[in-house]
């Protein structure tokens, strides 16, 4: 087995996801899960049977309460992530998400060729290993953030009339613009499916990258480390996409 030539990689540790990004990620994932579950329940509550008096039950009330608490966490967490896109490290920077340069599009195309079309380049099955997330992933996260925004606008827009606080009230214009709560609620419901589809594909791809690249992709959201080959490191040392440098 091991008698043919083996290229033994020397891996170098890179601190990719800082603690705030990791904290954001897991809070976000957890809270979205809660929002999806409670959201499904709100849209079509189970026919729960109980012999308790109605006065002593508050099922729908609790589910909605949890949805709203999770919604606030989601919202502030999201705001925090946007803030961190300006002060965090280069892999967390907002430029990693928004296709502003030609390089970004070129990288997206490369990722598409490698990960989706599975094309080989120079006889190799894999090149271009990005250190942070790749351009394609970054762009998808950008779309995701837009859906986050839609969900906050519709959600808080619906919540505005149930609340006395100025913050949700600030969103009242959104249902008004869409033409009422009925349609706002439907959009809120449809957008939920984006989250479900995103989560499924995202988790799959994280496992895929971990499996194919073997650089600790999954655990990177735990400890923050990813590993890159020493030769790749040397090659990219001064050419690492550095958003701060572009300024």
């Amino acid at each position: 087995m091991a008698n043919k030539y083996l290229h033994i990689h020397r891996l170098r540790r890179v601190y990719v996801w800082e603690l705030p990004v990791r904290f954001y990620h897991w809070l976000n994932a957890g809270v979205i899960l809660v929002l999806i579950i409670t959201g499904f329940f709100i849209s079509n509550p189970l026919a729960l049977m109980s012999n308790a008096e109605a006065t002593n039950q508050y099922t729908m009330g609790w589910v909605r309460y949890i949805h709203f608490i999770a919604a606030y966490l989601f919202f502030f967490n999201f705001l925090f992530r946007i803030y961190w896109g300006f002060v965090g490290n280069k892999y967390a920077n907002w430029r990693q998400f928004i296709p502003v340069s030609k390089r970004f599009f070129k990288e997206m195309w490369t990722v598409f060729k490698i990960d989706i079309l599975m094309l080989k380049k120079n006889g190799q099955q894999q090149d271009h290993l990005s250190v942070g997330h790749n351009a394609m992933a970054g762009f998808i996260y950008f779309l995701t953030f837009i859906v986050f925004l839609i969900q906050c606008l519709t959600g808080f827009g619906l919540y505005a009339s149930m609340s006395d606080w100025w913050l949700p009230k600030m969103f009242a214009w959104f249902p008004a613009m869409l033409g009422g709560d009925i349609v706002t609620r439907q959009i809120h419901h449809w957008a939920m499916w984006f989250f479900i589809l995103f989560a499924v594909v995202h988790v799959y791809l994280v496992f895929y990258h971990d499996y194919v690249e073997g650089r600790g992709e999954i655990s990177s959201m735990g400890g923050g480390w990813k590993f890159i080959e020493e030769d790749v490191f040397e090659k990219n040392k001064h050419m690492t996409p550095n958003p701060e440098k572009n300024k």
């Binding site: 026919a47 109605a54 039950q57 508050y58 099922t59 729908m60 009330g61 589910v63």
Partner: peptide, 9 residues
């Protein structure tokens, strides 16, 4: 509404 909050539909 109390039935709604109680989850009785």
């Amino acid at each position: 509404r109390p039935f709604y909050d109680a989850g009785l539909f």
